[in-house]
Amino acid sequence: MKRVDNIRVALRNLPKRQRGQGMTEYIIIVALIAVAAIGVYSLFGQTIRAQVSGLASEVSGTSATGAISSAQSAASSARTTATQSKGMGSYGN
């Protein structure tokens, strides 16, 4: 009888464990997406800000020439930074 009771208790507790495991997996996925978004924003943040500024200028009816050239120079800088080879030899640079 005790064996049957132990099996019932184990089966009753099973869904709770699985729900907790699923929640943990979702939290890990959300954390990975957040880290990736922070990395992309840190690499292209200045470009994104300049493009949004140009868009806001155009919507308001003014010329966005300065914002567009700023976005282009920021994109060029980001491209240069992204293509640099990084390794243990250039860790501090």
Rank of each mutant, 00 (worst) to 15 (best):
T80G: 08
S63E: 12
Q46P: 01
G92C: 15
A67K: 04
Q46N: 02
T24D: 05
Y91G: 00
S69T: 15
I38H: 10
T62D: 15
G39W: 12
S85G: 02
A34T: 13
I27F: 09
Y26W: 01
A64I: 06
R19S: 01
S60H: 01
S42A: 13
I27Q: 15
Q46E: 05
L43P: 03
G54K: 06
I29V: 10
V59A: 02
V9F: 09
R3K: 05
I28S: 12
Q21Y: 12
E58Q: 09
L32I: 00
G45T: 05
R49D: 01
Q84M: 08
N6V: 01
T81W: 05
R17M: 10
R12W: 05
S69L: 12
M23R: 13
A36L: 05
R8E: 06
E58A: 15
Y41A: 14
S85H: 14
Y91Q: 00
S77R: 10
A31S: 05
I48R: 01
G20P: 14
L11H: 04
S76R: 09
S76W: 04
Q72K: 07
N6M: 03
S76G: 11
A75G: 09
I27A: 15
A78D: 01
V52S: 12
G87E: 01
S69Y: 06
A37K: 15
A71N: 03
S70W: 00
K86T: 09
T65C: 11
V59E: 05
I7C: 07
V40E: 04
I38K: 10
Q46C: 01
Q46I: 00
A36G: 07
L55N: 09
K16R: 14
G45Y: 01
A71T: 07
Q21A: 14
R12D: 03
T80D: 09
T65P: 05
G66F: 04
S85P: 00
D5H: 00
S42D: 15
Q46D: 03
S90L: 10
A74F: 01
A64Q: 08
S77V: 11
T62P: 07
Y26I: 04
V9L: 11
S60R: 05
R79K: 14
G92H: 12
S85F: 13
A82V: 13
S63R: 15
I27H: 11
